[in-house]
Amino acid sequence: MSIFGFGKKKDAAPAPAPDPAPTPAEESASWFGRLKSGLAKSSSKLTSGLGDLFTKRKLDDEALEELEELLITADLGVATAARVTKHLAKTRFGQDVTSDEIKATLAEEITRILGPVARPLAIDPARKPHVVLVVGVNGSGKTTTIGKMAKTYKDAGLNVTLAAGDTFRAAAVEQLKVWGERTNCPVIARETGADAAGLAYDAVEQSRARGDDLLFIDTAGRLQNKADLMAELAKLVRSIKKVDETAPHDVLLVLDATVGQNAHSQVEIFKDMVAVSGLVLTKLDGTARGGVLVALAEKFGLPVHAIGVGEKVEDLRPFEADAFARSLVGME
């Protein structure tokens, strides 16, 4: 890898946790531990807020309002935060509660909402290949997600091919090629500026001829309100269907956890244009909470397949509702 000059940036030590919430067991093999170490950073503020709020305190209107605000700061959105809080009020209003009890009840309610959408990506290698199209706005982490997923499925013994469908952005093709070399997966690419739909057509055809199990097609990032770029994406899907009527078998929308309420618009429009079948939430290792996922689950019910909690390949993890919810409210 070093010949490319792309050193792993955090080989020495994982990112240190912020001062108030030290997170032990960074290297724990359990994915929950890993997620927690990522999310602990995000939820430390939320947690300390809850701690301040609810240590031996009556759950009155004022407390509920503050709680609602804490959920808002986690990007749940005004409406969802209000609904979750109202639910809490229904069962516990007027009672003396501890912060632990509140966290547990909150996590339960969030798990109830997220449970139905926590579904892993189901690859059917018999499709030869199972075609996964990856879409999203610019900079959400599509190419990195593909790289990580390719590694996972390659390690699981599947024949995986990558298609460099981002023929627009400078060096995007090269970026995917590096991932191809890292993961030892062939990359189908054309020069920057080539027709992406044509490339996708060729990729499915070649991958099929080779008898691949799995084909990931990368696409150029595009803002969902750009009608012409969205139409291009729809065209790309049509060209895939010319080779295989049933493809793409999955369309993954990659969302950045830092995003706020605009995620609604992203899901809505991408879903309309290219029938998004599932979501991946990236960059959860920062301080962004990704709480918008709760609102998205309520509104669209799309499966959440995976979350990204770091830059290493193994930092892409299946999405588990309970763990996410508990981490979101700061439960250990």
Binding site: K45, I72, T73, A74, D75, V137, N138, L223, Q224, N225, K226, D256, T258, V259, G260, Q261, N262, A263, S265, G286, T287, A288, R289, V292
Partner: peptide
């Protein structure tokens, strides 16, 4: 498109690196 986290990231970058100005990208989105 950044959500509530904007405060945290702006504060941290400003404290740790010292920011002199902000560029807001993708303003052509919705």
């Amino acid at each position: 498109m950044t959500g509530q986290d904007a405060v945290t990231l702006a504060r941290e970058f400003n404290e740790k690196v010292g920011v002199t100005g902000i560029v807001l990208t993708r303003i052509d989105g919705d």
